[in-house]
């Protein structure tokens, strides 16, 4: 694990624990399939296909990865399961690397933007409010001044939920109650952020399915109104995806990108048996980096995404 030296050991363990299920199957299956073989045959490709598909990587991306493996094996050859495993890992990492230049190693904010405005969007039930609560706590813990905006004025009790998180983290929550104009809440939150010299303003929005055009357009409006308070905001539009969602996540990424420029992804609920493989394809197709992953209930379980650790945890065997 030398190359992950900078990666907090505890966090790495928790991610691995979450993704444990795959690891066990994967290595033994691949080992069995390639025992005594010197080239990638139908059987190995079938195994690969099954592993990738059952991790929600999706048909198109799976085919893409398999093509890359075939091409790579043609020139590099491999000797055993370990090596094939390594090649596979490298190829998947490469797919993500093409979008993600460098991973941050910890929670940080750009030095010259104050306040840094993050708008959080996504479909219903993916964990937007929870992610915001955890983000707020993490920023607060490293000494940043945080303001939250309760822009989900639609779902029953969503404002109350964010306020509980605000109390837990010890950060102010700007709210106008339920059924109020979310754009007005966002404006007020950004303005409060400016007036109180906050480092970061995080704005919650109501969950919306990408098929509801009027709700999707509302996001553009919230963004425009935010810009009245701070012209270059929002600096980050974070799309939250549920790690257990299948190929519909691709559609979500596409539709949300249409109405607001998504700049980063957060993938939640990776502590279950779901693998979140769909983000590989999303990251590749839309060139949006994954920034955070959620691997548990605790505040520290919201982590910075690290592509190599993610892929390693997805594929590596337990030793």
């Amino acid at each position: 694990m030398g190359i992950f030296g900078f990666f907090n050991k505890e966090k790495k363990e928790s991610l691995e624990k979450g993704l444990e299920k795959t690891n066990q199957n994967f290595f033994s299956k691949i080992s069995k399939a390639i025992a005594g073989k010197s080239k990638v045959d139908e059987e190995i490709l079938d195994e690969l296909e099954e592993i990738l598909i059952t991790s929600d990587v999706g048909v198109e991306t799976t085919l893409k990865i398999i093509e890359r493996i075939e091409a790579r094996v043609k020139k590099d050859k491999y000797l055993n399961a370990q090596e094939l495993n390594k090649i596979l890992k490298e190829e998947i990492v490469a797919l993500i690397t093409e979008t993600q230049q460098n991973d941050p190693t910890q929670f940080e904010l750009p030095a010259h933007t104050k306040p840094y405005v993050i708008m959080v969007v996504g479909v219903n039930g993916v964990g937007k409010t929870t992610t915001i609560g955890k983000l707020a706590s993490q920023f607060h813990q490293i000494g940043k001044k945080v303001v939250l905006g309760a822009g989900d004025t639609f779902r029953a009790a969503a404002v109350a939920q964010l306020k509980v998180w605000g109390e837990r983290a010890g950060v102010p929550v700007i709210e106008k109650g339920m059924n109020t104009d979310p754009a007005a809440v966002a404006f007020e939150a950004v303005k409060t952020g400016i007036d109180t010299q906050a480092d970061v303003v995080i704005i919650d929005t109501a969950g919306r399915l990408q098929t509801k055009t009027h709700l999707m357009n509302e996001l553009s409006k919230i963004k425009r109104v935010i810009q009245k308070a701070m012209p270059d905001a929002p600096h980050e539009v974070l799309l939250v995806l549920d790690g257990s969602t299948g190929q519909n996540a691709v559609v979500q990424a596409r539709e949300f990108t249409k109405v607001t420029e998504i700049t980063a992804l957060a993938v939640t609920k990776l502590d279950g048996t779901a693998k979140g493989g769909v983000v590989i394809g999303i990251s590749d197709e839309f060139k949006i980096p994954v920034k955070y992953i959620g691997v548990g209930e605790k505040i520290e379980d919201l982590q910075i995404f690290h592509r190599e650790a993610f892929v390693a945890s997805l594929l590596e065997s337990k030793s």
Partner: peptide, 28 residues
Amino acid sequence: DAMTGQDAVNTAKSFNDRVNFDGVVLTK
């Protein structure tokens, strides 16, 4: 959630093993 991916079977099986549910509701 009707949008659930490949993991739907694992989850459903685990819940069924524990509580032996009578029916499924598909949402969203």
